[in-house]
Design a protein around this nucleic acid. Structure first.
Length: 802
RNA sequence: GCGGCCGUGGCGGAAUAGGCAGACGCGUACGUUUGAGGGGCGUAUGGGAGACCGUAUGGGUUCAAGUCCCAUCGGCCGCACCA
């Protein structure tokens, strides 16, 4: 009898071996094919590891362990995304330095991850807060700055009054702060931007080259938000002159139905000609109100259209020559298109609402059954024939758009334009715990890059890094550091005191892993030539429109400057679903439904935790934790352990378990992230072995190897015991014989009129006549006339009979 | 409003390309083992006494529908006054 499995000592034994012998540390080896598997490096929060991390990391862990057994040289690195607000806030609360807090948290995470037995290459750890790392983050920023891709501008930005920090659009989705949920306010600030919009088109087309799940591609496409249309110039008669007002429209074909223009309350036209506006006071009041509204009423959706007519100016429709009124309304945004639209109320819901409210004419230009005076007809592209539209009459929408653009371009009143919803990336934060932006402000030379030889530009040690209410960075208090000289002219100058957002360090860490200690390059060219692109990247859906776009952008930029040789960083992406609390709700401290992986490891061991998190359900879908369900995995591993007692000395008939089919099933399922069904298949196999009551060493070895990526400790131990101390991680992953996948005989369900009536067992590959012979023998067709037979070989037979 | 996803036992979930619905696990019941059990082992477990009925609801296509089509109801996620 095997001794009772003691997970504590066995897991410790194998972890000592893996980490002590540096089993998973790799070097470039041209004799082997490489595989680069990546997981999103964690933010080392004080709360420690979460079961969500276990799910996120365990998929690549399985793949990495499997690929090693298949002969790949596997790079499976780990690091820490350690700059950021929670650490800084915690440090302030507890009056410690963020450096100290970060180091403690990293040490805690490292210990926890090792207890789970992950096969990371611990020699390659990167820490974004390490000056040797952020030196290169700053270097990349400077390369962008030198090429005009980083610029400073004064704009209205999203500002979180609680975190006291400027937020990128991506961090303030829905008008609330990503981190604390506080409503975001608009603030005029000097802001550093990265010109991610320059890469919008390539970020779109690049998606065609990579293997990402459709939902991720769709989300990124929506986020980038490409639209094709035209800029059209309307002449505005004001103050005795003609002001060219450019509107952006995706539907230039409907211009005959444009009965008014609407400009955003922030539009420069209103500022420039304020003195010519007859109802200037009213307009000014509306502008003020719109600004307030932005700050306080963002949550309200589909609110009533409001607006006000701008008296004292009138626009001329460039196609019809008709004079039409101009309105200002807050449903037109300054930061999209040109901040001005032509309103076609007959065919746009918002314009229609507005026209009804202010009693403006509605002209139908696309024929339909609906009466546009009663409701708008919002034609999808191609639906409908143009009417009341001069030379476009009779055309369908698509050709009408093309013809109108052609006409406008010839006449010089408009031109085709592609626009994107995605905004440039607001790149500075007024906080301490981030990479200093390596720029010096010189009164003579303007913004000057810190010389590369002076990188890293280190964060100065500060006593007090509390952010200020007015939004200036705590670094500004450190005058010794701020005051410097201009590297160009030598004059007294000051340093930029804002820091980079947390997204900076994570935008290129996957490249640093390839040569983490290189002092000469961000990415060592030789290392990159070997490891290249990430073969498979797993992470969360919440990063799809942030980190996953930002890092693609940085990689494309690095490609442009020749630092890397692939445009796309990730060949394949997968995404795990959330682990919910047992109550089906998102895990949170306040709900009290948080599961701590440490507790699970203590109670059941790492193998059980790893196995259950993968068995819990569809990997990509959310799944509730179950304290009961995990027992099943615990039982299974105990049964697996005890199966060593079933190894029989004599000959064993193992034909009831098709190992080739099992190997294929498990192998394919792992590669497809279907860990739950892979594990189920291994469970079924073990059930078969137990039902039979005996097994062979070979059979159990195959099961061990299949199970090893999921539960490496217990399989390593059992494999060692039954194979005279051999190491499972030095074995080969089992392969299968394609010709042995089908059994010799198959059981064929027999349907009569589509209803299951019988089953017959026939040799595999039997033809219809042979199967019918067997069916007749069962008697189900007695007294019936066969009309038609549908036979799917080796699958099913259906007989239509009277 | 737009885009995407999804509704299967008491529960988590299976079902390759239209071909045996409910794999695997949990839970439950009964039996058994043990000095004892919140342990091990065994059997059963969608509903119905039954022919049969069953994948949110109603229609349709097909020899055959959880899977395809149309409509309705419900849920989730992303974007959101995007011109």
């Amino acid at each position: 009898m095997a001794v009772k499995y003691d997970f504590k000592s066995v897991e410790q034994k194998w972890q000592d071996y893996w980490y002590g012998e540096r089993v998973f540390e790799v070097k470039e080896d041209p004799s082997k094919p490489k595989f680069y598997g990546l997981i999103e490096f964690p933010y080392p929060s004080g709360a420690g590891l979460h079961v969500g991390h276990i799910r996120a990391f365990s998929s690549m862990e399985v793949i990495a362990r499997k690929k090693r057994l298949e002969g790949y040289n596997v790079l499976f690195p780990i690091g820490y995304d350690a700059f950021g607000l929670p650490t800084e806030n915690y440090a302030m609360q507890t009056k410690q330095h963020p450096r100290k807090v970060t180091d403690e948290n990293i040490a805690k995470f490292t210990a926890q991850l090792k207890k789970v037995g992950y096969s990371f290459d611990w020699s390659r750890v990167v820490d974004t807060t390490d000056p040797d790392y952020y030196k290169w983050t700053q270097w990349i920023f400077l390369q962008m700055f030198k090429r005009g891709l980083a610029y400073k501008a004064t704009t209205t930005v999203n500002f979180c009054p609680k975190c006291k920090v400027v937020l990128a659009n991506e961090e303030s989705q829905g008008g609330v702060c990503d981190r604390c949920g506080t409503e975001v306010v608009q603030k005029e600030k000097d802001v550093w931007f990265l010109k991610i919009r320059n890469y919008a088109e390539r970020l779109l087309t690049g998606l065609e080259k990579v293997n990402f799940p459709e939902r991720i591609k769709t989300e990124q496409q929506n986020w980038i938000g490409k639209s094709q249309g035209a800029d059209v110039t309307f002449k505005v008669k004001v103050a005795g002159t003609e002001y060219p007002l450019v509107v952006y429209t995706t539907r230039p074909d409907t211009i005959y139905g444009a009965t008014f223009l609407v400009v955003s309350p922030e539009h420069p036209l209103l500022k420039e000609y304020a003195s010519s506006i007859v109802n200037a006071e009213e307009v000014a009041a509306y502008q003020a109100q719109a600004k307030l509204k932005k700050e306080f009423d963002r949550v309200q959706v589909n609110k009533d259209k409001t607006g006000i007519k701008v008296e004292g100016m009138v626009a001329v429709n460039p196609i019809t020559g008709t004079e039409i009124p101009i309105f200002t309304a807050d449903y037109v945004m300054m930061d999209y298109g040109t901040g001005a639209i032509m309103a076609v109320p007959a065919h746009d819901k918002r314009d229609w609402d507005f026209a009804k409210k202010y009693d403006l004419p509605i002209i139908e230009v696309i024929k339909s059954d609906v009466d546009v005076q009663v409701e708008p007809y919002c034609a999808k592209e191609g639906a409908g024939i143009m009417v009341n539209s001069g030379f476009l009459n009779g055309l369908t929408v698509k050709p009408a758009i093309a013809k109108m653009i052609e006409y406008m371009e010839k006449a010089g009143i408009g031109k085709a334009k592609t626009d994107y919803k995605m905004k440039d990336w607001a790149f500075n934060r007024q906080r301490y715990w981030g990479e200093p932006i390596p720029i010096i402000n010189c009164p003579h030379c303007g913004q000057v890059a810190v010389p590369e030889s002076e990188l890293p530009l280190r964060l100065p040690d500060l006593e007090d890094f509390t952010p200020t209410d007015d939004g200036t960075s705590p670094l500004s208090k450190c005058t010794d550091w701020v005051n410097t000289t201009c590297p160009i002219c030598g004059a007294k100058a000051t340093r930029e005191t804002d820091t980079m957002p947390q997204w900076a360090g994570s935008s290129w860490y996957f490249l640093r892993y390839e040569s983490p200690r290189d002092g000469e390059h961000a990415v060592n060219p030789d290392a990159y030539a070997y490891w290249g692109q990430v073969d498979w990247y797993n992470g969360g859906m919440e990063h799809v429109t942030r980190h996953l776009i930002y890092s693609r952008f940085w990689n494309q930029f690095l490609y442009d400057i020749g630092a890397v040789s692939h445009e796309e960083p990730y060949l394949r992406r997968s995404a795990q679903g959330l682990i919910l609390g047992a109550d089906g709700e998102k895990m949170s401290k306040s709900r009290g439904n948080v599961v701590n992986p440490d507790d699970v490891v203590k109670q059941y061991g790492a193998d059980v935790l790893r196995m259950f998190i993968l068995f819990i359900g569809d990997y990509e879908k959310p799944a509730p934790w179950s304290a009961e369900g995990i027992k099943g995995c615990n039982r299974f591993l105990a049964r697996y352990w005890n199966a060593q007692d079933l190894i029989a000395s004599g000959k064993v008939d193992t034909s009831d378990l098709n190992l080739d089919a099992l190997v294929k099933k498990v192998s394919d399922d792992y590669e497809a992230c279907k860990f739950n069904t892979a594990i189920a298949a291994i469970m079924t196999a073990l059930n078969t072995i137990y039902a039979r009551g005996k097994t062979t060493r070979e059979e159990l070895n195959t099961v061990s190897l299949l199970l090893y990526p999921v539960a490496p400790h217990v399989t390593s131990e059992l494999y060692s015991i039954i194979n005279n101390g051999a190491y499972v991680d030095k074995a080969k992953f089992p392969s299968y014989d394609e010709s042995k996948l089908v059994a010799e005989t198959v059981e064929i369900p027999v349907q009569v009129m589509g209803k299951l009536k019988e089953r017959v067992t026939v040799p595999a590959g039997s033809d219809e006549a042979a199967v019918m012979e067997a069916v007749k023998a069962t008697g189900v067709l007695d007294g019936k006339t066969v009309i038609k037979v549908i036979y799917v070989p080796d699958k099913i037979i259906n007989i239509v009979a009277k």
